[in-house]
Write a protein that binds this DNA or RNA. Structure first.
Lengths: 332, 332
DNA sequence: CTCCTTTGTGGCAGCGCTACCTCTCGGAAA
DNA sequence: TTTCCGAGAGGTAGCGCTGCCACAAAGGAG
């Protein structure tokens, strides 16, 4: 239980200077094969693990990229995480995650916490932040990528889809198929601005055709199948003449579909159903649910790419607006 | 874009020493109200964000806990993550995630990477690691908690359920209900030792009753509903006389259930179905799937607790074996 | 044989912060 | 008054590493 070995210990054993050990271990510059062997052997013999805290302080380079998402219990974000991870794989950078729990104040704390480690870049979900958080990110002097929403004013880089467009397109898809009385079901997250924007776009599309969203139902908590079922039952009880429902997520929509199967409601003839996200995990349900693929993996990948390019001194495009891809599935 | 302000900058503005600023900002020791105000005002005025890299190097305390899981695309692990996060909430420690992609060599790299940041504790899924990884963790001189499996020799702390027991109990549940020809469906993850152990326990239970697992089907890749459907179809085509299937995850089992609904197979009369994990997200399917609740959130919570206790100098129990809770649902 | 490069290695300073010790100064006790 | 004390503030020395420069040795050119 003695203290951890340091560069100096390795240097002593290998009979070289600390600098040489440092160079060998980082694979930098030229060193003799013999020296290299000696150093590596010494390092292994004491089980040397470099201390990146010290290394980073000295070099002022912290090979980490902060990634802040609202939630991890949601498949959606883990795909973003995977995209970012993949995108950083070859760059020598490592993602570090933070969770804001859909709360701006928490997000601010998480952002400040992240920045206190002086990461090389930051990726944050959404365009809405507290003033302090925005200020801190701007002052950090690192590339910052806001993702998953392009309806707003990005501070630095921005990658994602337009949530408003996604909603509007789905609204138009409902209209095109002749649905007349359409309701909305979503979860009431304090700061799920993206779901709000989708509803906004959706309502807009209906409004343009002289319609309005007939009934809306909100629920506290996450998106699960049961909740989708219950809310669907509740909404239909309240507005029995609905012929379409737009859900804020695929899970809720899937719950709605299952409710319809149970109660003999014909989807899509009697009731049109659509969700959002394009969660592959749910393929395999009795009917493929209409949804908008949000390109989450791709978003993560691109965000990572922007960070890297920016760090390389390139000046990549500031805003990357990905196309929304609407899949009507079998429920519209 | 000038450089970030440091303690010294704040000290200069507030007309006090760096030490005083440091103390005020950490809320340590006694300082005059007047001094405190001056310092806080100065810090705010320059947008000071402490540099934890420097702080940690100096104090030799890194308030991070590494958490390494095989995958994030799996709901299962995000619940563990949530448990750990929750458990650390009041401790001043922060979780940092790593993903091993079900690969021991990758896990080793991730572990070493983690350790190079000198975290205060480490939580790793599983009991199987490479020799180098095991050695490094032992040498790190920090509390290490291996989670989600108690069938093996933990290095330090251990929290989870016995996967073998979980499998055995499910086997007994099948037997108790009179199933005679039972198959297994799982995904072929190179290092999903836990699924293997469940199958082992399951087979053992059948063997004790003079039966064997009749057919087994494996698939590369993650657990999704479609894959569950396809594998079920394939297995039933191969062994049409099966009257029960044990799946390695709830998602696969749900896919199987949907396949049965489609093809008119009566569950549980004609075919008994069981999964593993107890994924709440899936409640709401036509029938509640038989499963073993793995207590993931609780595991994360407990692991965090052990880390904290250990750091506090307490000597908590080394092995925490949680009870497996079998829920027969409506598919057995 | 000198001069100049190239190649490999070492020395030193310092990254920004905190642990630990020292110093000051006003007030209470003697 | 003198002495002591303790609260509040400052000074100094690193933490373990890397950037930068210096330097020795080994050639190649003149």
């Amino acid at each position: 239980m003695g203290k951890q070995p340091t560069l100096k210990d390795v240097a002593t054993i290998a009979q070289v200077s600390e600098m040489t050990v440092s160079r060998v271990l980082r694979g930098k510059e030229d060193t003799t094969q013999a020296t290299r062997d000696r150093v590596l052997k010494a390092a292994k013999s004491v089980g040397y693990v470099p201390n990146r805290i010290a290394g980073s302080l000295s070099s002022k380079r912290v090979p980490l990229v902060g990634l802040i998402v609202p939630s991890l219990s949601n498949m959606v974000f883990s795909e973003v995480v995977m995209g970012v991870t993949k995108g950083l794989e070859t760059t020598g950078l490592q993602p570090v995650f933070g969770v804001s729990h859909y709360d701006l104040k928490t997000e601010e704390q998480v952002i400040l916490e992240m920045l206190s480690w002086r990461p090389s870049g930051l990726i944050v979900a959404g365009l809405e932040h507290t003033a302090d958080a925005t200020r801190a990110m701007a002052a950090a002097d690192i590339p910052v990528v806001e993702i998953m929403d392009t309806d707003g004013n990005p501070a630095d880089f921005n990658v994602g889809i337009s949530q408003i467009d996604a909603g509007r397109e789905m609204g138009q898809a409902f209209l095109a198929r002749g649905y007349k009385k359409i309701g909305f079901i979503g979860t009431k997250m304090p700061a799920d601005f993206r779901a709000q924007k989708r509803l906004e776009g959706f309502s807009g599309a209906l409004a343009a055709a002289g319609q309005t969203v007939v009934g809306a139902e909100y629920h506290q908590g996450g998106s699960t199948l049961v909740i989708g079922r219950k809310m669907t039952a509740a909404l239909l009880a309240r507005c029995p003449d609905l012929d379409g429902i737009y859900y804020s997520t695929d899970y809720l929509a899937a719950g709605g579909l299952l409710h319809c199967l149970d109660t003999g409601i014909d989807v899509p003839k009697q009731l049109g159903i659509a969700g959002f996200n394009g969660i592959e995990l749910l393929d395999g349900l009795p009917k493929k649910i209409a949804t908008t693929n949000a390109g989450r993996f791709e978003t993560g990948l691109k965000a990572a790419d922007l960070i890297q390019k920016s760090l390389n001194g390139e000046d990549p495009e500031r805003i990357v607006k990905l196309d929304t891809v609407l899949d009507p599935g079998e429920t519209l």
